[in-house]
Write a protein that binds this DNA or RNA. Structure first.
Lengths: 246, 246
DNA sequence: TTTTACAAGTTGTCAGACAACCTGATCGGA
DNA sequence: TCCGATCAGGTTGTCTGACAACTTGTAAAA
C-alpha cells in the first residue's frame, strides 16, 4: 500500500500533458515564435512517439490557453495576440510549502492595493455589502460557528468595490485557494483556532477606512490585516511589508 | 467573394467548441455544481450527436481552463476551484477597451507593489541586471531601433529582484501580453511614437530608488511610470492612482 | 494574362478497439 | 456476523485507420 500511495503522488503525467508542456516551453523559449507554424500533427505524433489523438488533445489545451491557433486545412500556428489567456499558477497538484510564502506575499501585495482602490471607488451599495458580511462574521463568532465563509465574502466585497473586473477575479481566485482556513490546513493541519475576533477587528478597521474614503488609511489597515493573517498561520511578512521606507 | 468573406467571419464554430460552450454554460448556471460528476463521454457524445473524440477535445479544453477534473476509471467532475486564471480580452469582434483599462490598472497596482518590494530585496546581481537592460534601452533609443524588448526586460528584472517566484510570473505574464508596444497596437494601431525618452527617464528614477533601497520612493516612481505609460496609450489612471489620501 | 481545375497536404471528425484504472458487489472463510 | 479477496462492469486514456472539410500551390485551359 505504501507503493500505492507513492503511485498516487508521483503518478506519471498524462501523455497529452507531457506533449503540451513540451510545446509550451518551446513557445516560451522562443524556439517557436509568434506566427510560426507548428509541425503537423502527424510529425508531432511521430517525434513524441504517441498517437495523433494525444497530440490533438495537447493542441486543444494550448488552443484553450490561447497559445496557438489552428486553421483547418492549413496548420497550427503560434498565436500573436490571443483572444484569451490562462495564467496557470502551478502545474499538477499544487504549490509546494516553500512557495506558499511567495503566494501569500503576492496576495498581500495585491490585496493592499485593492483595498486602497476600494476606498476611492466604493459606492453606497459596496459599503452596504461589506457591512452585511461583517455582520455575518460577527454572528458566526457569537454562535461559535465557522466564520471563514463570511471572511472570504468580506474580502470579495472589498475587491468588488474597486469596480475592476480583473482585480476582483484575481482576488477571488487567490481567496478560493488560499483563504485563511485552507492555509491553516496546509501549514499546520493540527491546529484550528483562528482567533476570529482578532481578524474581525482588523476587518472593521479596513471597513471604516474604506467607508470613510481614506485610501492611505485603508492601505495601512489592509497591510496590518494581512500581516496578522500571515502570522496566524506561521508566516512572517512583517519586516518586509510593514515598515514604511527607510 | 462577398460570400466567401462572410463565410470566413460567420464560420460555424468547431463542434468541440459547441460542446465545451454548452458544458461551460451548464456549469456557470449551476446545473452542474462543483463536485458533480459529468455524464460519461459516451453519453455526452450521444446527446450532442458527435463522436467521442469531439467530446474529449471539449473536455480537454475545460480541463485546461481548470473548470473540470478527470479521473481515469472514475469519471469527470466539476472542479471545486479552478487552477488557472482565465483572461479574456476580446469580445467577439474586437478588443474591449473597458476591460483593457481594468487589466492595465491591475498591472499598475501589482507593479507598484512589486517595485516597492524590489527595493527591499534587491541584491547586487539584481541591480546589475537592471542596469544592463537600462543600458540596452539607452542604446536602442540612440540607434533609433526598437527598445520595447529592453523595456520589457527591465520590468522583468525589477520583478526578479523581489525574489518572489509568483510575483515574477504574474508580471511576466502581464508584460508579455500587455507590454507598451502591444497595448499601442491595440488601442490605436495608427500611431507609433512611444516617446521612449520619457519612459526611460522614469525607468531611471525607478532604478535609482531601487538601487538605493528606498521602498517608498520606489513605489512613487513606479506609480509615476505606470501612470505615464497609461497616458501614452490614451488611458487615464491619474485621478485614481496618483493622489495620496484625501 | 487570367481563370479554372486539380492534386497534395493538413486539420476536423468518425468509428471501433484495447489498456489502465476505479468502484461496488459477490463470495468464501474466519 | 464480519472481513478480506476476487471479480465484473463501467469509465477514462490511448491507439489505429479512415474519411470529410478545407487550404494552398500548380498546372492546364481560356
Amino acid at each position: 500500500m505504501g507503493i500505492n500511495e507513492l503511485k498516487k503522488i508521483v503518478r506519471a503525467p498524462r501523455l497529452s500533458e507531457e506533449v503540451s508542456n513540451a510545446l509550451e516551453t518551446k513557445i516560451a523559449r522562443g524556439e517557436l515564435a509568434p506566427g510560426d507554424q507548428l509541425p503537423t500533427e502527424k510529425v508531432l505524433a511521430e517525434t513524441f512517439g504517441v498517437s495523433r489523438a494525444v497530440v490533438r488533445e495537447a493542441v486543444a489545451r494550448l488552443r484553450a490557453d490561447g497559445r496557438i491557433e489552428t486553421r483547418q486545412g492549413s496548420g497550427a500556428f503560434v498565436a500573436q495576440a490571443p483572444k484569451s489567456l490562462n495564467f496557470r499558477f502551478w502545474q499538477g497538484d499544487g504549490p509546494a510549502l516553500v512557495e506558499l510564502r511567495d503566494i501569500f506575499e503576492l496576495r498581500a501585495m495585491i490585496e493592499t492595493s485593492v483595498t486602497e482602490l476600494a476606498a476611492r471607488r466604493r459606492i453606497p451599495e459596496d459599503v452596504a455589502a461589506m457591512q452585511r458580511h461583517l455582520q455575518a462574521m460577527d454572528d458566526a463568532i457569537r454562535d461559535g460557528s465557522d466564520g471563514s465563509e463570511a471572511d472570504d465574502d468580506f474580502h470579495l466585497a472589498v475587491a468588488a468595490a474597486t469596480h475592476n473586473t480583473y482585480a476582483y477575479r484575481l482576488i477571488e481566485f487567490l481567496g478560493r485557494h488560499f483563504s485563511d482556513s485552507r492555509r491553516l490546513a496546509w501549514v499546520d493541519p493540527g491546529r484550528r483556532e483562528t482567533l476570529p475576533e482578532e481578524a474581525q477587528a482588523e476587518h472593521r478597521a479596513m471597513f471604516e477606512a474604506i467607508a470613510a474614503g481614506n485610501p492611505a488609511r485603508a492601505r495601512r489597515c489592509a497591510q496590518e490585516h494581512l500581516r496578522g493573517a500571515a502570522l496566524r498561520v506561521g508566516i512572517d511578512l512583517a519586516t518586509d511589508l510593514s515598515e514604511e521606507g527607510r
